[in-house]
């Protein structure tokens, strides 16, 4: 009785309710993604027995087919297969890969660290580049400074639309084939090999975050609190560090969740281009081979990673912006309680 009351009281705490709501939403997202992926692939993907027995053109006899179907439970009704798959996802047992004959969880655990390393490095580099460009552009004065700021603005727009496959190819041509500074292939944590893939992933995100940051920095610099700080005699650097920067980075923090997703998209291309093993390559290969357990596992993992990143973004927003701390996110409402800049993809931001 007492315990129940304690729990009830605890749940009334805003931050706990917020956390529970977010976790609930995360579980929901993972479940829906797993379900949709499973049924979509099975409905259109045909019989996975072919993938198990060595792809199209395999000369397996009817006994081998029947044995394989029994071994992977493919002779069961689809609903039973779905429930088995769901139970496995819940118990972190994702089944065996059809094409590679090893547990999916093993494959994912093997490939996840490399991709995460790449994505985190790229996001960090993008932030550094975007911050540098935005603060320089905002502080530019005089005709020359303004011309430079305009050029930077143009560079940001172009950088934001650079396709990974082209940027990576150009970097390989310049820095690998011609100058020979960095290798064109990359694997593991070799720092020299990581340079080109990281830059390839970071530049488009930096261009996008830079635009957002510059606009909000300009807005903050024109706000009354900045004027009053300047009137009190604070130096431009102090105004930037103490007052406007916190405001300036907020929309970029909100958009980092989206940016992380775009990095995972880019990882598919970049890992292919640089011959780097990783989650993106695994997903691409599994897609081509219709290796259902691997595709389900990889996609659910990507969705969960996104949900975790969004949670971190929410926490970071609350740390940066005291105005948000009392507010409780409404799960399910698109955009949650975050600022409007959460809106999502650059194409839609316009």
């Amino acid at each position: 009785m007492r315990a129940a009351a304690t729990v009830a009281r605890a749940v009334r705490r805003p931050w706990l309710r917020w956390l529970l709501a977010r976790l609930g939403a995360a579980v929901l997202v993972a479940w829906v993604v797993a379900t949709v992926v499973f049924f979509a692939l099975r409905a259109a993907g045909g019989d996975p027995t072919e993938a198990i027995l060595g792809g199209p053109g395999s000369q397996a006899g009817p006994e081998a087919v029947a044995a394989a179907r029994a071994q992977y439970g493919l002779d069961q009704p689809l609903v039973v297969q779905y429930l088995v798959q769901l139970w496995r996802v819940l118990t972190f047992d994702l089944g065996d890969s059809y094409a590679r004959r090893v547990p999916v969880s093993e494959l994912l655990a093997e490939q996840l660290p490399g991709t995460m390393l790449l994505a985190v490095l790229a996001l960090a580099l993008a932030w550094v580049l975007a911050l540098a460009v935005a603060t320089l552009a905002v502080r530019a004065t005089g005709p020359f400074g303004r011309a430079c700021a305009a050029a930077l603005r143009g560079a940001e727009v172009v950088a934001a639309v650079l396709p990974h496959f082209w940027l990576g190819a150009v970097l390989i041509v310049v820095f690998s084939s011609t100058l020979g500074w960095f290798p064109a292939t990359s694997s593991g944590t070799d720092p020299v090999g990581l340079v080109l893939p990281t830059v390839t992933l970071a530049v488009p995100v930096a261009g996008f975050l830079g635009q957002v940051m510059r606009d909000s920095l300009e807005e903050a610099a024109a706000a009354p609190f900045a004027t009053s700080a300047r009137a009190r005699g604070a130096s431009p650097v102090r105004v930037l560090w103490r007052h406007t920067l916190r405001h300036g980075v907020l929309p970029a923090v909100s958009l980092s969740g989206w940016a992380f997703g775009s990095l995972l998209s880019g990882a598919v291309v970049v890992e292919t281009l640089f011959g780097r093993p990783g989650l993106g390559r695994l997903l691409l290969d599994a897609t081509m081979q219709r290796d259902v357990p691997v595709v389900v596992g990889a996609v659910v993992l990507v969705a969960l990673a996104y949900v975790v990143v969004m949670l971190l973004v929410d926490v970071a927003e609350r740390l940066l912006d005291p105005r948000l701390r009392g507010a409780v996110a409404v799960p399910g409402a698109p955009g949650g309680s975050a600022p409007a800049a959460r809106a999502g993809e650059p194409a839609v931001l316009g």
């Binding site: 993604v33 996609v299 990507v302 969705a303 399910g332 698109p334």
Partner: peptide
């Protein structure tokens, strides 16, 4: 919301 959890 679910679709947004998957990169394009």
């Amino acid at each position: 919301e679910v679709l947004f959890a998957l990169p394009t």
